[in-house]
Amino acid sequence: MSRLAEIKRFVLDEFAPDVVADDLADDFDLLDNGIVDSLGLLRLIAWVGERYDIAVDEVELTPDDFRSVEAIAHFVDSHLPLLAQEGLR
């Protein structure tokens, strides 16, 4: 499963179990459309940190990084090599 598909699977399972994967566009705004609320955002950040071994409390992040499945995948992609390079992982 690709990273994007894995992230989408988690979002659907945790926040929108009645929606099928094909119906959730990669760029669908999860925050403004009420799929992920404030507590959900914390869960999502925690999951990303644990699943991809990213020290989310240390890196610069904004809610925009978690606004859509596509944005989350981009956030993960952009932090994995950086953290590995800096020896933070």
Partner: peptide, 9 residues
């Protein structure tokens, strides 16, 4: 500063 209710607002 954004849509009420959104954690990005």
């Amino acid at each position: 500063t954004g849509k009420p209710g959104s954690p990005g607002a």
